[in-house]
Design a protein around this nucleic acid. Sequence first.
DNA 1: TGCTTATTTAACGAATTGGTTGTATAGTAG
DNA 2: CTACTATACAACCAATTCGTTAAATAAGCA
Lengths: 115, 115
Amino acid sequence: MEGLDRAALEQVSEYFKSLAEPTRLCLINALRDGEMSVSDLAEAVESTPANVSKHLSLLASTGFVERRTQGTSVLYRIADSDIYALCDLVCGHIAKRIAAKSNVQAMIRRVAKRA
Amino acid sequence: MEGLDRAALEQVSEYFKSLAEPTRLCLINALRDGEMSVSDLAEAVESTPANVSKHLSLLASTGFVERRTQGTSVLYRIADSDIYALCDLVCGHIAKRIAAKSNVQAMIRRVAKRA
DNA sequence: TGCTTATTTAACGAATTGGTTGTATAGTAG
DNA sequence: CTACTATACAACCAATTCGTTAAATAAGCA
């Protein structure tokens, strides 16, 4: 992303924004095992169909999920499994931070002991 | 991130949120070549020192950048270069989407020609 | 000490967003 | 055709956020 202009960065931020919401991450997690209907997803993430529908259409607009109609239901699925690589990178970053922090705390404990 | 509870997902979303803003992405881009002061960064991203300072402290709180004081200046640098891998994944996703879209448009052109 | 520069912080306003509620649309069954 | 179900959409409110402005803090220097 080296030489991106302002407009491009705005678009990139849009994509990050669509992942920057716990309910949407929960939906993405629920879709790990395959496609699900809106109402089933609503139950899975403990929210209302209306709310879930709104989140899903946002995720669809950024291309992370795709929809398919079956009868009166609409089934959603993950469209780009790179999304999980993204989440794993962030989780790894958090894990590193927690590890670093506990190292600091361990050091503080050592210093305190010595004093 | 398979079995994450609500609290953990909320934390993950915090990290994505810190990348979900064009000015912050611009700052991260500017820090690619090494550490920079707040005022230099403000000039680089065409914003005010106050605004940039606020964005930087947010990025520091999620551990993507680190600070170091030198005289009256404060120098910021990238703390975890995984951040670029994250951006590259998103850029790749966008590129895929654009490619797919232009394929669809090409197909539409073909069909239109045939008719 | 006082002056200047660099950064941070607080307070404010405009704009965006997540969730709710009520309504509209579309497909299915009777 | 009517009734029912599943989903989407519009309007609304509360809460958050980006940027600005002004004031506070801190470091270097005359």
